[in-house]
Computed example of a mutant assay.
Amino acid sequence: MAKPDSKPPFTPVAVLRAQARKHVERGPVTRSYPEDREVILEHLGRALATEWVCVLRYLRHAYCITGVVSEPIKAHFLEQAREEQAHAHKLAERIVQLGGEPDLNPATLTERSHAEYVPVTSTQDMIRENLIAERIAVEAYREFIQFLGDRDPTTRTMLESILAEEEEHADDLRDLLA
């Protein structure tokens, strides 16, 4: 039976220091980052576009909702819009940290988004469209998290916190729909 290697697979301190100095302009992106960082940036960009489409849809619904029960639902839509905007902020910051640039071009936002922007007028349809979008976001974030695995724990942890909030949004909307 082979004797297990007693040395852990850590980079020598001298090498860590030299690499940090050599590539200081890369900020937090070190040589241990996944080689497919561009793919990660692309998916972060899609998530960013999705969040902004959701912000806009929630705001439209908050502005357009009418009826006897509209005030609490309007408040709910405004809160969801704020939370989606906070998600967008986190995603944009992470894109920049990884050396990318957040694409906020309104002309192509819906093309890059997982969710659709479907204009509806009834309260029931507004809730339904928002629930559909949240379900899409939940599935997209789950797939992205699985794709990342342990290769980018910082991005994965951020996405897991966003996913938890998206699941909460879907649960709240399901309750409103009932």
Rank of each mutant, 00 (worst) to 15 (best):
D125H: 04
H114G: 15
G45A: 02
A164C: 01
E35D: 03
E84M: 09
A115Y: 04
N130H: 14
Q85P: 01
I162C: 03
T66W: 03
H76C: 11
L109R: 08
V138L: 02
R26L: 11
D5I: 15
P34W: 06
E51R: 11
V55R: 00
E167G: 13
A137V: 12
E165L: 09
G100T: 13
A20R: 07
T11C: 05
P72N: 01
L48Y: 10
D171W: 12
I136Y: 04
R151Y: 03
I162G: 01
I162H: 08
S32T: 15
Q146T: 09
E42C: 09
L56W: 04
K3F: 15
L173R: 10
E143T: 15
A115V: 10
A178Y: 07
Y58A: 04
T66I: 10
P72W: 04
L163F: 05
A18G: 00
E93R: 13
H87L: 07
E38P: 04
P9E: 11
F10P: 06
A107F: 10
I65C: 00
V68K: 11
A18F: 02
L48I: 07
E83S: 13
P8M: 11
T110R: 02
L173S: 10
F147N: 13
E42G: 13
G67N: 12
A140G: 06
L91G: 04
T157E: 15
K7W: 02
E51V: 07
L98H: 13
L78Q: 11
V69K: 10
P28Y: 06
Y141Q: 11
E134M: 07
Q85D: 07
V68I: 00
D5N: 14
Q80G: 14
H76S: 12
R94C: 00
D175M: 11
E166F: 13
L163D: 13
A75L: 15
L163M: 03
S161E: 11
K90F: 08
R26H: 08
A92G: 14
H169L: 04
D150C: 06
L91I: 15
V118G: 06
